[in-house]
């Protein structure tokens, strides 16, 4: 699963769910697809301040990472919608295998009026609950 947040100029945060992603070839940036229809404040805030946080979670074991950095928006292309459809199918199947009924998941994930936000990653954090939570990934444990 993927959840994303931005903030407006007054510091009020907005949040939403990602429905697909793609790591760029330079491995310094990632593109995340979200529904601007479902999460309009997210789109407005990214345009306004250009900062984004994205957390990726494996629902079966709670292993989580958070990426942060500058963000820009672009419209979707056919390739993006295909990625989003595959992501939604895979996420729905995994959650269902963990016992979450399919009809509960359907309201969360849509490609309606999808946008792509490109995140130039400047910070990566381990967010799995436990002793390493909040640490910058790659930090040496002393």
């Amino acid at each position: 699963m993927c959840i994303i947040a931005a903030a407006d100029a007054s510091g009020r945060p907005s949040a939403g769910r990602g429905v697909g992603f793609h790591i760029l070839e330079d491995r310094e940036a990632i593109e995340i697809i979200f529904s601007a229809w479902q999460w309009p404040r997210l789109e407005a805030d990214i345009r306004q301040t250009g900062k984004l946080a994205a957390t990726f979670v494996s629902p079966s074991d709670y292993v989580s990472f958070q990426l942060k950095g500058r963000a820009t928006l672009r419209d979707t292309e056919a390739l993006d919608i295909g990625r989003a459809d595959r992501f939604i199918t895979a996420a729905t199947n995994e959650l269902e295998s963990l016992g979450v009924p399919r009809r509960l998941i359907a309201p969360w994930l849509t490609v309606r009026e999808a946008k792509v936000v490109q995140l130039a990653v400047s910070e990566t954090y381990v967010q799995t609950p436990g002793s390493l939570a909040g640490m910058l990934a790659g930090t040496r444990l002393s």
């Binding site: 959840i3 994303i4 947040a5 931005a6 903030a7 100029a9 510091g11 009020r12 945060p13 907005s14 949040a15 301040t49 900062k51 984004l52 946080a53 994205a54 957390t55 979670v57 989580s64 958070q66 942060k68 979450v100 509960l104 967010q127």
Partner: peptide, 18 residues
């Protein structure tokens, strides 16, 4: 179903977690 919390630091960098 887990909730989601979004915050922002004083300099406006957002943070999001379950």
């Amino acid at each position: 179903i887990p909730s989601i919390i979004a915050t922002a630091s004083a300099d406006g960098m957002p943070n999001i977690s379950y």
